[in-house]
Design a protein around this nucleic acid. Structure first.
Lengths: 159, 159
DNA sequence: TTATTAAATTATAATCATTCTAATTAAACG
DNA sequence: CGTTTAATTAGAATGATTATAATTTAATAA
């Protein structure tokens, strides 16, 4: 477990190392991401959260920051088919090693904190000559009686 | 291997069985999908192809038809993160039993005609109590020296 | 510290995919 | 064939995202 401040520092360093500038807006955005590590926030969500503490920030800046962080592989851009991109931090200890379970009733997303695809990636390489650099694995379905954690409260109000 | 006409007939029947009408526009759209079974076309792509033979058709109709077919599980709506939804037929013999390899250089998509997730779906059920009804598995990467089939022509012109 | 320079931000407009609306047309079914 | 109801059309509206031009700021060196 690395502290928020340490992670922030490391992210800033990576940014500067690649020739980008470290700005207060970018720091504010990264801070929000650090505090919502696996919330799958949309750009608009991030924008609203950043705005609470930095009201002058513009939406376009948040979009550009998220784009930059994605480029630096510091955040992961996802797409659950609801028309908006979603963003999560990609911290050292869980680098694209997670999958998603998406509730088809309420849209709630939960993570599987594991990499179940190591074997399959080798198989892809072997059988198709395809070198995998990343993957995306989402399961769509429902939790048993929709009573699992976060999902519950949404599903109950949904139907 | 079922003929295009037979598949079309079956699709129309399913449509009517659910109380929807069979129209020439819908038929034209389905015909295009049947002839491009695994091309991952965007709504715009489908629209242009349908328009060649049915110039009066409107874009909204194509969108509505694709939406309807998705609802009937006759087509699969996909999302490769490039801002557009893509649609493929979901014929009997390959019902959501395929995965994707997406070239990170040119964006070309190839399919793996197999279901590699049967075991993992059981594991999800067992370990998380999540009942999987569908899944999405995409690998992002490159083909060895980018010389594999379709990918080649795009990659060469890309860089 | 201050000046310089290039990059970043802001506010706003533009764009692109997708959906909605109102009027018109066409399927289905008796 | 007429009725009913859904589907289509054309065009406007929406919502997410990106581009633009003017202004500000961070990094760097004098």
């Amino acid at each position: 477990m690395i502290s928020v401040e340490e992670q922030l520092k490391s992210m800033k360093q990576q940014m500067i190392a690649k020739g980008y500038k470290s700005t207060v807006q970018r720091e504010a955005t990264m801070r929000v991401l650090l505090e919502h590590e696996r919330d799958h926030m949309s750009a608009e969500d991030v924008y609203m959260r950043v705005k609470e503490r930095f009201p002058e920030i513009g939406l376009a800046t948040v979009y550009r920051t998220l784009e930059l962080l994605t480029e630096l592989h510091l955040v992961e851009k996802m797409n659950f088919g609801d028309g908006v991109s979603r963003f999560d931090l990609r911290s050292k200890d869980r680098e694209h090693m997670h999958h998603h379970m998406i509730c088809s009733i309420c849209g709630e997303v939960e993570e599987i904190q594991d990499d179940w695809l190591i074997e399959l990636e080798q198989r892809v390489k072997r059988e198709y000559g395809f070198n995998v650099s990343d993957h995306r694995l989402d399961f769509i379905g429902t939790f048993s009686s929709c009573k699992h954690g976060e999902c519950r409260k949404h599903c109950e109000t949904a139907s």
